[in-house]
Structures are given as structure tokens and as C-alpha cells.
Nucleic acid binder design. Structure first.
Lengths: 195, 195
DNA sequence: ACCTGAACACCGTTCAAGT
DNA sequence: ACCTGAACACCGTTCAAGT
């Protein structure tokens, strides 16, 4: 069952909520996560107050819209954890994560924002799955053991952020992911003298 | 002479322009580059129309405020180009560049945006200086020769972007820069099988 | 040539009134 | 219990009138 109906709602309220989610997805696709919430409410056929009742903040609405995608990230992470090739598993997951953060313009910022992406959200489960993969790769010694897993996830989000800038796209994301992976794979600076 | 007076202006116009720049710097420091332009104009003692006359867009104002900082980046780049240690020079410059992009919340996005950072701006000279350093490092074989210099600059901006997110800061930027440098220094994936 | 500030359009958010 | 939509505050942007 979809997590978007986890709470018991009156029939009309559930319908409104669903309608808001669909309309919001459409609006975010077209105009990014900064799309006008007034327009969303209007297109969903409800008053602005109804939107705010269901989703107290923009971030809340954004996270609800991509809830399914985040669940997929978690499921994928759990599956890839069984993969015997930890390096391959990590690359796959990070690639998928970056693409997930790129479905709406401005989405990366929402996921990187701790107040938005808190314990109540699927977002956290997705990140936890990613951290497990990073840890596994470190244990298998296919990446360095001295990197902070949160830094890796931050870098992935940063790559998605770059990709959503003008004149950039999927190709850039791929290249930058390779750059990140190269940095993970290799020992810290030797030839680079500190400061 | 400061580039902020490159055009001849009537005395009162020049004074207004200078006042706007100072007030804007203050506002951007406090509220990020998204600060209210109305407030800036009010605090500078001019009407909103005057602000728009001097700076047709927010990006234009932002770039004017950090113009000196960008010039410093260019000068630093030119100096470091003479450094015999190309790896050290690159690290120094990228570190300074990341810090420069972190002086205001949201600044990194402005610099990454091509329509904002175009040929008329000091911003381009700064980026050119950085690219020269990257090329020099590649020629000296202290970094891989197959990385796109623009990707490196993008990554630096992305690191600054991460650093301006909640719960992150200068320490994160340092760590992530090391991660980037490790990726530059080392050959592309071997152990990581493609796809 | 430059400045002023009213005016317009738009948006997020709240809340009293309704069902 | 939930919805409605008017109302409020705020902001970017323009432009006619002024000096």
C-alpha cells in the first residue's frame, strides 16, 4: 500500500490529498520545486488552505510527491547490499540516487536540508540504505575506509545540483560521478602537500 | 582603481551606486543572495527604481558586490601559475575559490549560472585563471589529463553549495576538497566495472 | 541624465466562516 | 473533521512624473 495514505482520512480529504500530489508532481516537473503553490491548489481544485492543511510546508509536499521514488531507493539499496561486487553495487546505487535527486529542478536542495528531510520521512530510510552500501564498500576495501559516508551522500547531492544548472545535464552527472568514485577509491593526498 | 566605477556617472548616481553596493553586501551577508531588494534600496536611501537602473537583475548586483573578490581570485591564479609545485598551486586556488563562493548563502548558484556569469563580468576572468591552473597541473601530470577543467570548477562550486547547507560548514568544505583532489589525482575506475 | 515612489502583479500564509 | 476563499503581508518590477 502506498505510504501516501498511511493516515485514515475522510473520503473527500483523501481525494483532495491525492489530487494535490498529482498536480504538484506535474507543476514541479514543469517549473521545479519552486512552482507556485497557489497554482497547484487551483489546478487541484481546492483552496490554498486545503493545501496547507495537508502539507504544512513546501518541503513537506515535495517529499510526499517523491515518496515512492525514495522508497525505491531504499529497496534498491537493500537488494544491492547482497551483491558480491561492492564496488559495482555502490556505483549503481549512487547513480540511481543522483538521477532520483534530478527529477525536479531544485530537488537536491530539499534532500540535503536536514530540517526538511527528517526522521518522519522515507528520505531517511533511503539515505540509510545508501550509507550501508558505502560501509560495505569500505569493509570490502574497494573504497577508502577513511571517508565519511555522509560526505559521499553530500557529494552525490552536489552532483545532482550541478546537473540541474543551465547548460548541464545527465552527461555531466555521469562524468562527475566517475570523478567522485575515483576520489573514493584512492588513498588521500600524497603528492599534494598540505596547505 | 576599483572596477565598480568603470563608467562615468553623475556624482549623485555614483554615490547611489556605491551606497547600494555597500548596503547589498550587508544584506547578502545577513540573509544570503536572496535578500529583499526592496530592503536594500530602502536601506540605501533610494527608490527601488534606482536599484534596478544600476543593476537590472539580482545576479548583476550580486556579481558587482563580489567583483573585488573575483579579481582577487584572478590575481591569485596568475601568481600561482608561476609556482613550481602545480599540485600545491591547484589546491591553494581551489580552496580559495570555494571560500570565495561561500561568502554569501546562495552565492555558488550565481557563479554556476552561465547567463549570470557571462563575458562582461570579472567572474569569467576568475574562472579562466582557475582553468589555467588545472591545465598546468594536468601538463605537470600531477592530476589526470582526462578530466574536463569545467568539471573541476563545477565540483568546486558544488562543494561550496554543500557547505552553505544547514549543519555544514568550513570543515566539510575542506574534507570535500580533499575528496575532489583525490579523484583528480588518480586514474579512472579499474576495479569499478562500468554499469 | 538620473531619481522617485506609486502602482501592478504575484505569491505564501492565515483564519473566520461554512458544511 | 475538513474545506473555502477572502484577507494580509511581502516582494519584484515597471513607469509616469519630476528634477
Amino acid at each position: 500500500m502506498p505510504r501516501t495514505e498511511h493516515r485514515r482520512l475522510r473520503a473527500d480529504a483523501a481525494r483532495n490529498r491525492q489530487q494535490l500530489l498529482e498536480t504538484a508532481r506535474e507543476a514541479f516537473s514543469r517549473h521545479g520545486v519552486g512552482a507556485s503553490l497557489d497554482d497547484v491548489a487551483r489546478a487541484a481544485g481546492v483552496g490554498p488552505g486545503t493545501l496547507y492543511r495537508h502539507f504544512p510546508s513546501r518541503d513537506e509536499l515535495v517529499l510526499a510527491v517523491i515518496d515512492d521514488g525514495l522508497t525505491e531507493m531504499q529497496v534498491l539499496g537493500d537488494e544491492l547490499l547482497k551483491d558480491s561486487d561492492a564496488a559495482h553495487a555502490l556505483r549503481r546505487w549512487l547513480g540511481a540516487y543522483i538521477e532520483q535527486l534530478s527529477v525536479f529542478q531544485g530537488l537536491a536542495a530539499t534532500l540535503v536540508n536536514p530540517p526538511a528531510c527528517d526522521e518522519r520521512h522515507t528520505c531517511r530510510s533511503a539515505l540509510a540504505a545508501g550509507m550501508a552500501l558505502i560501509d560495505a564498500a569500505a569493509s570490502a576495501a574497494v573504497i577508502r575506509a577513511d571517508v565519511d559516508a555522509n560526505d559521499v551522500l553530500d557529494m552525490a547531492a552536489a552532483i545532482a545540483w550541478i546537473g540541474e544548472q543551465p547548460n548541464r545535464g545527465a552527461r555531466h552527472r555521469k562524468r562527475l560521478l566517475e570523478l567522485l568514485l575515483a576520489g573514493l577509491r584512492n588513498p588521500p593526498a600524497e603528492r599534494f602537500s598540505a596547505s
